[in-house]
Nucleic acid binder design. Structure first.
Length: 226
DNA sequence: ATCTCGATAGTCT
DNA sequence: GACTATCGAGATC
C-alpha cells in the first residue's frame, strides 16, 4: 500500500452570494451514498426560514447503504423510511428517541433506499438565531469558536434544532433552493486525501463499516475521530 | 477527557 | 414490549 498523500489544506470555495443561492442539482445526489457523503464535506447547507437565512459548512457525514443492516431502509420500505426510497436530492428527516430530529439527503437511483446523514456543521451565518433555537444557556460570547460550533451544530440532532429542521421538512426537494439546499459553491475540487473514514456512531449493527466521513484536523465534529 | 444514566414518543415485532 | 443513526447533566478520573 502506498503512503497516504498529504496536500495543503486549501479549500477552493466560491462563497459569493450568487453561488450560495445555487443549489446542487439532482445529478449530484444520484450517486452512491459513500461518494455523496464524501463530496458533501466542506459544502454549505443553507436553510431559509421565518427568521431568515442560516447556513453552515458540512464537516461530518455518514453513509447508509442498500443492504446495510444499520440503515433504516434495511428491512424494506415502511411509512417512516419512505423518503429513502424516493428521488435523490430530497430530504429524509426522521424523529428518534422521542425528542430528536436528524437530517439526511437521499442518494442513488430511485428505489435503492440509501441516504447520507449530516452529523455536524461549522455554523457560519445566523448564529444568533441558532443559539435561540438551541436555547443556549451559556452566553455565546464566553465560548471559543470551536466550543460554540459544537454547542450549536455538533451532532445530527443539534444541527436540526439549530436550523429549525423538523417533521415539516421530511421529504422536501433540496434541489429547488426554497427552504433548504446545499450550495454549489464550487468545491468540486476536493482534496480527497484529506477525508478521514471511520466507523459510524450510535449504531448497534454494521459497526465495522468505515462510512463516517470527516476532514483531517477539522475541529467541528460531533465527537473526535477515534 | 470519558463515563453513566435518564428523558421521551414513534415505529415495528 | 423492545428498540432507537441522541443529548445533557452529573459523576469520576
Amino acid at each position: 500500500m502506498a503512503e497516504p498523500v498529504v496536500e495543503t489544506n486549501v479549500i477552493h470555495h466560491n462563497t459569493d452570494a450568487a453561488a450560495l443561492r445555487a443549489p446542487l442539482r439532482h445529478e449530484f445526489y444520484e450517486h452512491g451514498a459513500i461518494e455523496v457523503a464524501r463530496s458533501l464535506l466542506n459544502r454549505i447547507l443553507i436553510v431559509s426560514g421565518e427568521a431568515g437565512i442560516m447556513n453552515g459548512r458540512i464537516t461530518e457525514t455518514e453513509a447508509y447503504l442498500p443492504d446495510d443492516p444499520a440503515s433504516h431502509a434495511f428491512r424494506g420500505r415502511t411509512p417512516r423510511n419512505a423518503p429513502m426510497f424516493g428521488s435523490a436530492g430530497h430530504a429524509y428527516v426522521y424523529f428518534t428517541y422521542g425528542m430528536h430530529y436528524c437530517f439526511n439527503v437521499v442518494t442513488g437511483g430511485e428505489g435503492t433506499g440509501e441516504a447520507v446523514l449530516i452529523r455536524a456543521l461549522e455554523p457560519l451565518v445566523g448564529l444568533e438565531q441558532m443559539a435561540l433555537n438551541r436555547s443556549l444557556t451559556e452566553p455565546a460570547a464566553t465560548m471559543n469558536c470551536h466550543r460554540l460550533g459544537r454547542a450549536l451544530c455538533g451532532g445530527p440532532a443539534r444541527l436540526c434544532q439549530a436550523l429549525g429542521l423538523g417533521r415539516a421538512d421530511n421529504g422536501i426537494d433540496l434541489t429547488i433552493g426554497d427552504r433548504a439546499w446545499i450550495a454549489d459553491t464550487g468545491a468540486e475540487k476536493h482534496a480527497w486525501n484529506m477525508i478521514v473514514a471511520s466507523t459510524r456512531i450510535g449504531i448497534s449493527v454494521g459497526v465495522d463499516s468505515p462510512w463516517r466521513f470527516t476532514l483531517r484536523d477539522d475541529p467541528f465534529t460531533s465527537r473526535p475521530v477515534k
